[in-house]
Each structure stands twice: as C-alpha cells, then as structure tokens.
Design a protein around this nucleic acid. Structure first.
Length: 496
RNA sequence: GGGCUUGUAGCGCAGCUGGUAGCGCAGUUGACUCUUAAUCAAUUGGUCGUGGGUUCGAAUCCCACCAAGCCCA
C-alpha cells in the first residue's frame, strides 16, 4: 500500500499535479484567462537579425508559447510559438523571488508567457532576458523525446495535437492546406462564382458512383445518407439562377476502403458555370490549379516524391480511347460491344469479366495500363457514356460523353463534364443505372425524380467540375498519404 | 479481401539458437549556472499489443485476435 503510493507519486503525471498544487498554494492560477502577447518568436528573430552576439537592448516584449527545452536548471528555456522559437534567459538578478520559485515548478511542455528585454547571448542566440514569467497552462503529460521526436505513425494520426507540437513540417502542411483552400475560394470569387451550401444529409445519395453512409432521422423516422457528392443540388441551383456560377467546398463521405489516396470523409470542390462546356472547364481548372500553386508555393513546378511536375498551363489533352490505344495497344473505336471489349482486355492479361458494360472495361484497362504512365498533368477526355450518367453526350460520338478526368501524377484530381441538361435523356440514364443496380452494381446511381423535375424546368448549357482538395494538397505539400493532409484522419476504434 | 512487416518504460530503440527485461532521451534527487541534443553524479519507472497453447521455464516458438504501416487486388 505504502509502496504503491510512492510509485504513484513518482509518476510524471502525479509529480506534475503536485507542482500544480504548489502553484495554487502560491496563489497562482495555472490556467489563467488571458496573456497580453506583444510579439511572435519569428517576428523578433527577423527584427533583431542584425543584433550582434553579446548585444543588449532595452526593448521590452511579451512572448508566449510552449517550453520545448530547459537547460541549466531552467536558466535557459526554448520557447516555441506558432511562428518559431526564441530563447528565454532567467536569472535571479532580474526576477523576483516568487518568479524564481515559479521557474522551479515549470516543466518541458508547459505553456508560459514571458516579458523581458531583447539581447543576443555571447554564443549568438537571440534571447529574452525575463523580467516576468507567467504560467499559461501546466502540462500534465510528458512530451516525446526531443531528438528523435514522435515518429510512430499510429500515434501521430491518433494524437495529431502531439504530432503538431513535435513536428514543424506537420504544422506547415496544415497551414498550406488552409492557404490552398483560401486561394481557391479567392480565385473563384474573383471570377464571379457564388459560394453556396447544399445538404450533407440527403434522402438519395446521388451525384457520384459510391457507397454511402446511412443514418437515421428520428423525428422524421426516415433513413438518410451522408452525401457522396453535392452535384445534383448544385445543378438545381444553376436551374434556380441566383447565380450563373456557383461553387461549394464540400465535405463528402464514401463508405469505402482507406488507403494512401482515400479517406471516408474527404474535401472536394465542385463548381458549375452556365453557358460553357467541358472545354472551358479544362481551361478553368488548369488556370486555377497553377495559380494556386504559384500563390502558395511561389512556383508552378512542383516536386512530388521525387517527380518534377509542371503545372504550367495549358495541360496536355488525350482522349480516353487514344490513351488506351497508345499505352495498351488496343483501338476500341471499332470494338463496341462489352463482349468484344472483355475479349480484348483478356488478350493483354486483364480480367474484366465482372464489368457490366463497355465503359467499365475501358476504365479498368485505363487504370492498369495507362494511369502509371501519366505523371505530368493531362486531361483525359471523352469518357464512355455508360459510366458517365450525368454527362452530356459527345457532340461527335454518341457512345461517348463530354467528360474529362484530369490526371496529375497519375491520380484523378478532377472530374468534369458538359452537364447533361436534357431531362428525358437524364431519366433514361438513371433508368440504365437502376438496371445495373438491380444486377448487383452497388455503386450505380438511383433515380432522383426531383432532380429530373428541376431539369424539366430548363437548365442552361452548363460546365461542371469536381476537384479533389485533399489530393491537390498532397501534391502541393509533397505528402505521401492522404492521412498527412487530413488533420484527424479516420482511424479504427481501439477496443479496450 | 490477400501478402509482407511492425507492436518491449512517456518517446526513440536493443534484446541471437527459449533461462531473472536493457540502452539513450525524458522524469526524480543533487551538483553546476551564458547554455542550446547543456554537462556531471545518483536514481525511479515494464501486464514485453490481447488471449490461448507448447515447455520445468516464453518478450523470444505455435495459434487466434486487436491495432498500425507497406505492397497487391
């Protein structure tokens, strides 16, 4: 019993709670309300860049942040804030007895605020000579080791706050993510696009081919779906006409597997513009993405995992059939039945027997034989009609649609069409989807009567575009996994 | 869904063909007081992912499960 008490008291957390108690006994609130911060660490580093080693000033600042290191029994503290680091020097000549006592109760990890004068030590470190120290939050948890840091991926994803404390590049990634989204928003707003919001809870999960999450509304006693895409609602807004240009930066949800490029909830940009077609969408996309890269990174040439990728417009365009012909050696322009297509797939070692239609066979061949070759940005244009139920038929080829997918590093980063606006054709396409669903295609889309009804009032010619924000952020931050660009990625629950 | 790899102290890691669980950092106590991965001395801390099995004896071998990573579909 006695032994147990001693062991407990010696645990780090218990020891820190003990210090917490001592602070309270000294009349200090370890979790105060405000701190009047007057400068950031990086700001001071730049401002006093020219101050020579050993130089002293009378300039007083108040800084605040987390203690990342302590040397000489607290005489030197490394203080980190969101902008950078600055050293704190504390000496009994400059501090009251009470503050020296407080210093003894501080630990690595604590949040503190310091007021003092700027100097540079003889060894060359910009330092604040403290005249006053306040504790802003007592940390009860021990930070990971300073030299090797936190590297365990599971801990980093599950406790992102700790990952961020320890890894500056992680903080940088999320700052960049925010800038990327801000620049997209600004780019579109400047073009006259109206930012809108549409339902995340939907009674029909439409606008894409994916399995939805199902939930239940108690008061209405009905099942609902988390949206897999905002598409059908955004086009209703184009019908409504409050703006001829709308966009939504949306969180969507797909009940599918998790891998390097997929998270069950993800962020997408969807935009719709009246009176234009998919050609205009290609131009808009490549201009927007390259501009965002230029503004956030200062360049249109990015390096992703060792590959140099040039986002400078215009991007190459290849038809899907042309790309397959080039990389898989099959010309599908005269092989028009699903049986013929499967036969051709088999000849090059691809099993497409489970594909319900011609387009799916082509899509599979594309993924396996073409995609690995596509590193530089390219618009793959003119997708098969049977896998594009929301796209307008191609004006020159009724088997195809005016749809493109933009590829960067081989990944689909955008998907866009000349939007199908003919309500009768749209109904027919939905019916084909329902047939596929009946035959076991779990991703086939359901008929959305109200959407067709909206089209029956007349939707102008419209170009639409969806852009995967997470993947764009991966590319622009050189992140290997989508989990590195989503602050709190979906993780399996740990059963205890 | 399949394969491979990983899981040992708060963190980073070692632990061989089975024989009393270790190192570094962090922590604690003290020294030192212009250091910066501070230094020096002493020192605390473990359900070895979980559950079974084999064995006189399991971190180590076997099985199942849990979690993660990578590759493949």
């Amino acid at each position: 019993m006695e032994q147990e008490t001693i062991n407990k008291a010696e645990s780090v957390r218990e020891a820190r709670i003990q210090k917490l108690t001592e602070l309270v006994e000294m009349g200090i609130n370890p979790y105060p309300y405000t701190f009047d911060k007057t400068a950031g660490a990086q700001e001071l580093q730049e401002k006093y860049k020219e101050l020579e080693a050993g130089g002293e000033t009378e300039d007083i600042y108040s800084v605040a942040g987390r203690i990342m290191g302590m040397r000489n029994s607290g005489m030197f503290i490394d203080l980190m804030d969101s902008t950078g680091k600055i050293q704190i020097f504390s000496h009994k000549e400059n501090l009251s007895e009470e503050k020296m006592k407080l210093l003894k109760l501080l630990d690595v990890g604590d949040m503190i605020g310091v007021t003092g004068t700027i100097r540079r030590t003889p060894r060359g470190e910009l330092t604040i000579k403290s005249k006053d120290i306040k504790i802003l939050a007592k940390s009860l948890q021990q930070l990971p080791e300073k030299f090797h840091g936190l590297t365990d991926k599971e801990t980093r994803y599950r406790q992102r706050y700790l990952d961020m404390i320890m890894n500056k590049d992680v903080r940088d990634t999320f700052v960049k993510r925010s800038k990327i989204i801000r620049e997209i928003r600004e780019y579109l707003t400047n073009l006259g696009f109206l930012e809108v919001e549409t339902p995340m809870l939907q009674t029909i999960a439409g606008g894409a081919s994916a399995r939805p999450f199902v939930t239940h509304h108690n008061a209405l006693d009905m099942d609902m779906y988390l949206r897999i895409a905002p598409e059908l609602y955004l086009k209703r807004l184009i019908v409504g006409g409050a703006s001829e240009r709308v966009f939504e930066i949306n969180r969507s949800f797909r009940n599918e597997g998790i891998d390097l490029k997929h998270n069950p909830e993800f962020t997408m940009l969807e935009l719709y513009q009246a009176y234009v077609d998919y050609n205009d969408m290609m131009v808009l996309l490549e201009n927007m993405v390259s501009t965002v890269a230029q503004k956030v990174l200062g360049t249109m040439k990015i390096n992703y995992q060792g590959n140099e990728i040039d986002l400078t417009p215009p991007w190459d365009r290849m038809t899907m059939l042309g790309a397959i012909k080039q990389y898989a050696g099959i010309d599908f322009s005269d092989k028009i039945t699903v049986e013929e297509a499967k036969l051709e797939a088999k000849k090059i070692g691809i099993d497409a027997d489970d594909c319900e239609n011609w387009g799916k066979v082509l899509d599979r061949i594309f993924e396996e034989k073409v995609e690995p070759h596509l590193i530089q940005p390219v618009h793959i244009i003119d997708y098969p009609k049977d896998i594009s139920p929301l796209a307008k038929p191609h004006r020159d080829n009724s088997r195809l649609t005016e749809r493109f997918e933009s590829r960067v590093n081989g990944w689909e980063i955008a998907n866009a069409f000349s939007e199908l606006s003919d309500p009768i054709d749209q109904r027919h396409r939905f019916e084909l989807q329902m047939q596929a669903k009946a035959q076991g295609d779990e991703e086939a889309q359901e008929i959305d009567e109200d959407y067709i009804n909206a089209l029956e009032y007349g939707m102008p010619p419209t170009g639409g575009l969806g852009l995967g924000i997470d993947r764009l952020v991966m590319l622009l931050t050189d992140s290997a996994s989508i989990r590195d660009v989503i602050a709190f990625p979906t993780m399996r629950n740990i059963k205890k």
